[in-house]
Design a protein around this nucleic acid. Structure first.
Length: 441
RNA sequence: GUGGCCGUAGCUCAGUUGGUUAGAGCGCCAGGUUGUGGCCCUGGAGGUCGGGGGUUCAAGUCCCCUCGGUCACCCCA
């Protein structure tokens, strides 16, 4: 086997996220964690690969994700494994295995792997944050879960996001509806798009979701699932919509919304970023899955959850010009003209005192070091030259000040002085300093 | 997985009907200023022209394959 020469690059559909772009990822995860925990969800960590049956039984063998997009592998012990293509099935598997007391609310952040043609906003390894809530069918919980998803996008600063909701019914009422739908599709099959004209029986619900003009037309007067829910599902859905209305959450009732996983029952929803031009504008989606726990070998247990794609959330932020990469600047930059030992010791002291301290290396010229200090964004530079060293002092230089204000400070006073200045600056920016007892008269 | 478009410096891009040592801006490094950043000036480093094969006296340019990106379909985050 002869290897290709030249550098090796990240596999197709994967990417490296470098600083400062990765700072935005930290923001998304931190803000999501904060909100989810405010809603009572606790972090759950799952393996990135599972027994392949977790996904076959959970998501459904006929779904595209399981049928043709899974990364499957056999390990050295002959186990049939798969990289997780989404989050829910693994979390539910963990629920069945550990049986935490219900209602059990868990949030997660995880990579997800799907073998598909890569494009903007569509990766072979993407990343999701999400939640799952198991143990109650109360429609008020549906409202909480949807409102959490809406709160997350709002917290990022996104405004152009639309919420679509639907009800998929349940195993009682959906089959009867599918019969009605099939009858309609059979009668109108000539009007459907090329693919669905011959394949509408395979997954009739999916035809409703088809974007082609033909299928749109051919299903315009098709029976709607929301009109054929049984009494219990209809009451549940009505309560969900009432709750959304009561909380002032705008939504669009979307009877054609059909999601790709087989486990959904009753409430389903999707968040679409309308600022995104590309087809990949779904930033999140989820719904209820009242039969999933049983399918994975647990007791009958209702559940609901959603997942959101970090890459797509960030693309949407780009499109709306929110959440720019603005990692905080260091508190101080140490410029040392005496060989570097002074900088070495001072940054160590400053960091022990809790400040973010930077410095230059390789004995660069003062001009070069100040240039780095400027670029770092640090508000203050500490200058240490031969004069300062002799006098036991340092020079504090105000960066960003066109007049370049400078002051001499005794070497022994540098750390407390800079800690003090840092606290004042944070207070001025509305960030509570670590200690503020001195502000009480 | 199917079809279209695109791959030239770290980034954004020029590069004529194939024709000498492949360019610009920004960024980076150094100097102008033997202790002062941003602005300016000068200089410098940096390129397997995505990779491989072919056509040709000659390929960044044409052809084939391949890898990657991207758009549509599909599917979804």
């Amino acid at each position: 086997m002869v290897e290709e020469p030249g550098p090796v690059q990240a596999p197709r559909g994967t990417k490296d996220v470098l600083w400062p772009e990765s700072w935005r990822w930290e923001q998304v995860v931190a803000r999501f964690a904060s909100l989810a925990e405010r809603f009572g969800f606790g972090l759950v960590l799952n393996p990135m690969f599972e027994d392949v049956r977790v996904f076959r039984r959970g998501i459904g063998d006929d779904s595209d994700v399981v049928g043709k997009e899974m990364y499957e592998l056999t390990d050295r012990g002959g186990r049939q494994l798969a990289l997780r293509p989404e989050g829910t099935a693994s979390v539910v598997r963990a629920f069945v295995q550990h049986r935490p007391t219900t209602p059990w609310r868990a949030w997660y952040v995880t990579p997800a792997f799907r073998y598909e043609r890569a494009a903007a906003g569509r990766y072979r390894q993407h990343h999701q944050v999400g939640v799952e809530a198991l143990g109650t069918d109360d429609p008020d919980l549906d409202v909480e879960v949807v409102s959490l998803a809406v709160a997350v996008v709002a917290d990022l600063g996104l405004e152009q996001v639309e919420l679509a909701v639907n009800s998929m019914g349940c195993s009682e009422c959906r089959p009867a509806y599918v019969v009605l739908l099939l009858a309609h599709l059979r009668a109108r099959s000539d009007d459907l798009c090329d693919e669905h004209r011959v394949r509408y029986q395979v997954n009739p619900l999916r035809v409703l979701d088809c974007k082609t003009a033909a299928c749109r037309d051919g299903t315009a007067d098709a029976p709607r699932l929301v009109d054929h829910l049984d009494a219990a599902c209809a009451a549940h859905f009505a309560r969900v919509l009432e709750g959304l209305g009561s909380l002032g959450i705008p939504y669009r009732l979307e009877p054609r919304l059909v999601r790709g996983f087989d486990y959904y029952t009753r409430t389903t929803f999707e968040l679409a970023a309308t600022a995104l031009e590309a087809a990949q504008n779904a930033v999140g989606g989820g719904g209820r899955y009242n039969g999933l726990v049983e399918q994975l070998g647990g007791p009958p247990t209702p559940g609901i959850g959603f997942g959101m794609g970090i890459e797509r959330l960030l693309l949407a932020c780009d499109a709306e010009g929110v959440l720019p990469a603005e990692p905080p600047a260091p508190d101080v930059f140490v410029v040392d003209l005496t060989g570097g030992a002074e900088a070495r010791d001072l940054v160590a002291e400053l960091r022990r005192a809790g400040l973010v301290a930077e410095r230059a290396y390789d004995g660069r010229s003062m001009k070069a070091q100040l240039k780095l200090a400027d670029r770092s964004g640090a508000p203050i530079a500490v200058l240490i030259g031969a004069q300062e060293l002799r006098a036991g002092q340092v020079t504090l230089r105000q960066m960003g000040d066109p007049h370049g204000g400078q002051a001499q400070v005794a070497r022994a006073q540098v750390v407390p002085e800079l800690v003090c200045r840092s606290h004042h600056r944070q207070a001025a920016h509305g960030v509570p300093p670590v200690t503020r007892s001195e502000e009480r008269p």
